[in-house]
Design a protein around this nucleic acid. Structure first.
Lengths: 135, 135
DNA sequence: TTATATCGGACAAATTTAGTCGTATATAAT
DNA sequence: ATTATATACGACTAAATTTGTCCGATATAA
């Protein structure tokens, strides 16, 4: 359970490809998919999520495609994970306003606060890890 | 995918219970299970893994049960995760001697090394997080 | 009008996690 | 010896999540 999802891996590959190939043109999902060997339909969805989270920008229509909204040094891992998966949560209860629906122990749980500290450290680590360091 | 498994959560609860209840006696899976509201059969398997990894010790037979092998300050999160889940691996390829079976990109993958650095940081963080801080 | 691209949601397959069950072994008490 | 209660261990099932696919809509250049 402590693993990057395939979607996050693919997102990183895609960002890498965009970084090296969009100086003077746009790049399509098809091109990234074939070049990086990533399933087309899955990648297409990932690209949309990256667009929604303003990590990449898109131009629609023929000759359309994607480009990076900001340089890799300004994109961090937390942003990517949040964009293509969901917010980082070490347990089901570790977010604001969690209720008994999320965990029956809530309120009486002595683990919640220390695990929240741990989660914050992980998020901090991921915040400080930029794509520039990875790609 | 960046979440503690239920097994790890249950293991932490169990260690906490053992820490507070085994000064002068042994504690059974049944007692922990009922007291901490953890499914008995699942907890039983978790206890066995903790024993195998020398985090807790067991005495068999009637009047048998478990106790902590070492104090919580000497147990860290990496040990627990390795014991009840498996080694921490951020991607399928991030271990020694990974082959193309594990990832077809291996050898040519530019992400492997930087992601390995990240994985080491996470492991280091988990190594430095003892159960004393959590329970 | 056509070809090619993004957009978006529903769906299916595969994998992983979570939980269950049955049986064997150990040991204290009767 | 037998019984009751505990751990040990593996196989199995169920549930949840991730991964991958499909289909139709919209946008735009040629």
């Amino acid at each position: 359970m402590l693993k990057l999802s395939k979607s996050v891996e693919y997102a990183i590959f895609a960002i890498k490809y965009l970084n090296y190939n969009t100086e003077d043109r746009l790049v399509s999902t098809k091109e990234i998919s074939e070049s990086m060997k990533i399933p087309y339909d899955l990648l297409a969805k990932i690209m949309q999520r990256l667009v929604k989270n303003d990590i990449v920008s898109s131009i629609q229509g023929t000759k359309g495609g994607y480009y990076l909204t900001k340089p890799p040094g300004q994109i961090n891992l937390t942003q990517i994970i949040s964009a293509v998966d969901s917010e980082i949560r070490l347990t089901d209860c570790l977010f604001d306003n969690a209720t008994e629906e999320d965990c029956s122990r809530i309120g009486a749980c002595s683990l919640r606060s220390p695990l929240n500290n741990l989660q914050n450290k992980i998020i901090k680590l991921f915040n400080s890890t930029t794509l520039e360091e990875i790609i």
